[in-house]
Amino acid sequence: MSVTYLDAIREAQAKALASHPGVFIYGQDVALFGGAFKATKNLLQQFPGRILDTPISEDAMVGAAIGAAAEGMRPIVEMQFADFSTVGFNQIVNHAATLFWRTGVPCPITIRLPSGGTMGSGPFHSQMMETVYAHYPGLVVMTPATVEDAYSMLLEAVLEIDDPVIFCEHKMLYYHLKAPALPTVALPAKHARIARHGKHATLATYSAMVHEALLASQQLATEGFEIEVVDLRTVKPLDTDTLLASVARTGRLLAVGESFPWGGVTAEVVSRAADEGFALLDAPPRRLNAKDTPVPYHPNLWTAHRPSANSIAAALRDLLRS
């Protein structure tokens, strides 16, 4: 018996629905159909009246969730693809994210973003949006990399966090990433995690790139280098303490992200290391991101567009030589 990353997301929602009467799911094709990726499959039967199909109206979906949250509900909004959340961007960053600050009324909504690239998905079904949302005050941005985190962090987002959470779940991990069982204990979402211990360089990353980073670290291990992989788990807030503690052990830092290269999480990681941990560094900190073009369609282009185990390994070798 094993549990996939997608199962974990479905089970977390089922548990949240069972635990709190204020939880409901609002999104396109989520009810009878069970969601474009089946993340809400069979939930309608278990929780009738609480899984609601919406028109194709991302702005209004988030707006309605904000209103319901102001009334004490804890809605989960499923965006069909992270890319489409841009249509609801205004409600997310200007309304949900400002509500508590402006009025003192909390806005506990969880917006699920099926994120990241899969082969053949092209420019509008592949994007990573964490960088964009992390920029705005008032939002919590989670980027789980494991089955266990997909479950426990989603539960924490829906039931425990009283603020808008942008939950970036990676589509590439949905079906293939498996764990023996759902977790029974959880590390709070705000903490980063050491996914692999090492001493020669710190590789800070998140979401699906954690798995590419671990593969790259295995390559480097055969060359005699022990890479410490830090899984950031949540990019806003960013666990700078865990990051800097790792940099203190290794003296070198590579930050890897699947999103576009201008600014973003990797830039923030490098900036914090340079600002707060300059004396810990033995070499200039480095970043590796996707290329500065839209996400391409063809597999030949797509595999070269995003960081991979090989390109990460190459970047690590450069870093270790510097």
Partner: peptide
Amino acid sequence: GAMVSAATGMLLGRRLR
């Protein structure tokens, strides 16, 4: 225009409860 859906959501929340 943003407040139309927010107001709708408040009533939706009440109805769900």
